[in-house]
Amino acid sequence: MLRTTAAAIALTLAAGPALAQDGAQLFNMQCKMCHGGSPMGPALGGVAGGPVAAKAFAYSPGLKNKGGTWTDANLDAFLKAPSAFAPGTKMLISVPADGNRKAIIEYLKTLK
């Protein structure tokens, strides 16, 4: 079931730049189910510009060992290919469309 849901989300995210107009809408459609109070992912308020793997969450060793800060470039690389950015990460969903990643990152910057 989780794999089916992940595949459906990946297909939706790949739909293209038309969705990139609204980062909040993209976040609510694609990210909120895991990052909106679920134990599946950490809350993302204040994540942009903050240290990697610093929220209260059981991160994978790959992400814990990454270190550094969630810059736009790091967020973009992680959203584009989570397992390439941090091998062994628990995040299964990627955001293949450049415009969608940019919109989500801009939205994350508004979360405090």
Score class of each variant (00 low, 15 high):
Pro82Gln: 09
Gly16Asp: 09
Cys34Val: 01
Ala56Asp: 11
Arg3Gln: 15
Phe85Gln: 00
Pro17Glu: 03
Ala15His: 01
Thr110Gly: 06
Lys80Met: 09
Lys102Val: 11
Phe27Ile: 09
Gly88Met: 06
Gln30Asn: 13
Leu13Glu: 05
Tyr59Ala: 03
Met40Gly: 00
Thr5Arg: 09
Ala24Leu: 08
Lys102Asn: 11
Gly45Asp: 14
Ala6Ser: 08
Gly67Gln: 12
Tyr59Arg: 07
Thr71Ile: 04
Asp76Trp: 00
Pro39Ser: 11
Ile105Arg: 00
Leu79Glu: 03
Tyr107Leu: 04
Gly45Pro: 03
Thr110Asp: 05
Gly62Gln: 03
Thr110Ile: 11
Thr4Ser: 13
Met40Pro: 00
Lys109Trp: 04
Ala73Val: 08
Thr4Ile: 15
Leu92Cys: 08
Ala48Pro: 00
Leu63Asn: 02
Gly16Asn: 09
Pro96Ala: 12
Thr5His: 00
Thr110Tyr: 10
Ile9Tyr: 08
Lys112Thr: 08
Gly45Asn: 10
Leu63Ala: 01
Lys112Asn: 09
Phe27Gln: 02
Met33Leu: 03
Asp98Gly: 08
Val95Leu: 07
Thr4Val: 12
Tyr107Pro: 03
Val52Lys: 03
Lys109Val: 07
Ala14Lys: 12
Met33Ile: 11
His35Arg: 06
Pro82Val: 02
Ala56Gly: 05
Gly16Glu: 05
Asn100Ile: 00
Ala53Cys: 15
Ala53Asn: 06
Asp76Ile: 02
Ser94Asp: 07
Glu106Trp: 05
Leu19Cys: 02
Leu79Trp: 02
Val95His: 02
Trp70Thr: 01
Gly46Tyr: 06
Phe27Leu: 06
Pro96Met: 09
Cys31Val: 04
Gly36Glu: 13
Lys32Pro: 00
Lys109Glu: 05
Phe57Thr: 02
Pro87Phe: 03
Ala73Trp: 06
Lys55Met: 08
Ala73Leu: 02
Tyr59Leu: 04
Pro61Ser: 11
Leu11Gln: 08
